[in-house]
């Protein structure tokens, strides 16, 4: 990796980390949704700063250049984040369904209750 590439990757991963931490601090992202992002930026940061590990992984996965390894990891992590979201969205869909059903049923109970009360008067 050239010095240029290294500096750019460093700046990018540090910015990502700072942005995510900033958003969590301002409560724009909940902690449970930020951990994957933080993991990504720390991993990329580690790979850049500890260059030998990057070379080792590059050799291990048979990539052409260390830069490819970085891209690959970034890409894999993005897929992971998306799968994570799909799981969460499915869970939310289910929760929204249950809440809406409950609201519907409870509203009917309340209406019935009011009607009966008026009849009693």
């Amino acid at each position: 990796m050239t010095l240029h590439q290294e500096i750019f990757a460093l700046v990018a991963s540090v910015s990502l980390l700072l942005i995510i931490l900033g958003l969590v601090r301002k409560r724009k992202i909940k902690e449970e949704y930020s951990w994957l992002w933080i993991l990504i930026s720390i991993t990329i940061l580690t790979l850049i700063l500890w260059y030998d590990s990057l070379l080792f992984i590059t050799c291990l996965i048979g990539a052409e250049t260390p830069l490819t390894t970085l891209f690959l990891f970034g890409f894999l992590f993005l897929i992971l984040v998306n799968i994570h979201y799909s799981v969460k969205i499915s869970k939310f869909t289910d929760q929204v369904k249950k809440i809406s059903q409950k609201i519907g049923l409870l509203t009917k109970e309340v209406e019935d209750f009011k009607r009966n009360k008026e009849k009693d008067k």
């Binding site: 809406s100 059903q101 609201i103 049923l105 509203t107």
Partner: peptide
């Protein structure tokens, strides 16, 4: 008829299931 009104459109299956839940109770 008696009516249970869902606050949002959930879909045919979920609407039916609301009825099942009512019948169960």
């Amino acid at each position: 008829a008696m009516v249970v009104s869902l606050p949002i459109n959930l879909g045919y299956g979920a609407a039916l299931q609301t009825g099942y839940k009512y019948a169960q109770v």
